[in-house]
Amino acid sequence: MKFLHLAAAIGMTALLGACATPFEVADVNEIMAAPAPTAGSAFTKALFTEYKAYTKHEALDEYEWDHAAVFARKGLTAATGASVDPELTADWNLMPERVKELDAARARLVGYFGNGARDRVPAAAAKAQVMFDCWLEEEAEGDTNSDCRAAFLKVEPELQVKAAAPTAPKIVKTFIVYFDFNKSALTKEAMKTLKDVAAAAGEIKPSSIYVAGHTDTVGNARYNDKLSSARAASVEKQLTKMGIKSIDAKSFGFTKLAVPTKANTKEAKNRRVEIYFEK
């Protein structure tokens, strides 16, 4: 059977008029008849599939059985579960001015593999390797802008390790200190709350502490801006005395009411400083 297979391959070679050897034709025939492998990783299985498809294209569409055999052998090796490396520019007759781009692309590809792309995205990794090999083969034939080059560049982003989106800080604790009407001095109740703030800061160890001063709607905006700033400063100063550092203090006047009211309305819950822990 092997003799008949080889004889058929020899006949096909002669018929095609290609420069491939009988053994190269036999390799091409072997991969085209081969079933999907059961051995190996997801990457090597995908690599076999990609090399088989490109071998078929080179042999039956381009009639380049010698080149088809190069990829057939790589696909047959992948079918055993073994990884094969992308082609080297030194092994192909390339225009010198094109080598730099190809070497850079190969270096990126190998880098992606080193960062786990073959395990993370096996199908895309296999596609990228075969498209790189195809690109290199097309460059050897003088095509400097081949479909294979475009396919490699298209799939390349899938191989890159995507940086995780930074996690936005969350408010994990909130305290509210209330003030007497038109005052920024801390009351006894306010001092008790600030002691709780200091104790909680030691336990929670927040990444950020924010202090926001507010007022009710009595008086004009300019006056209440100053009053809310004074209230925030009172809280910040006391917390600093208690050992809490790096406080971000802001003031909002009556622009952010806890209880919506009409203008010139006294409302105890609006005369406040809010303290936020973020982590």
Rank of each mutant, 00 (worst) to 15 (best):
L4F: 11
H5G: 14
I10F: 08
I10L: 12
T13I: 14
A14S: 15
L16I: 07
T21H: 06
P22I: 07
F23P: 03
V25K: 13
A26I: 09
A34E: 08
A34L: 04
A34R: 11
P35D: 11
A36T: 05
A42P: 09
A42N: 12
A59F: 02
L60K: 11
A68E: 02
V70D: 15
A72I: 00
K74T: 02
G75P: 00
A79W: 06
A82H: 10
S83T: 11
T89W: 00
A90Y: 00
E97T: 15
R98I: 01
R98M: 11
A104L: 03
V110E: 00
N115E: 14
G116F: 07
D119F: 11
P122L: 05
A125T: 00
A128T: 03
C134S: 13
D143P: 05
T144M: 14
T144I: 14
S146T: 09
A150P: 01
A151P: 01
K154D: 09
V155A: 08
P157I: 02
L159T: 01
T167Q: 12
K170Q: 12
I171F: 04
T174Q: 10
T174N: 06
F175M: 01
I176E: 10
F179W: 02
A185M: 10
T187F: 04
K188Y: 08
T193F: 00
E203T: 14
I204N: 07
A212C: 13
G213V: 02
H214C: 15
G219P: 08
N224P: 05
N224W: 04
K226Q: 10
L227D: 02
L227H: 03
S228T: 06
S228N: 04
S229D: 12
E236W: 06
Q238F: 13
L239G: 08
T240H: 09
M242E: 05
M242R: 00
I244A: 06
K245T: 15
K250R: 12
S251I: 04
G253I: 06
P260N: 11
T261P: 08
A263Y: 10
T265Y: 03
K266T: 15
E267F: 03
R271E: 12
R272Y: 01
V273L: 05
E274K: 14
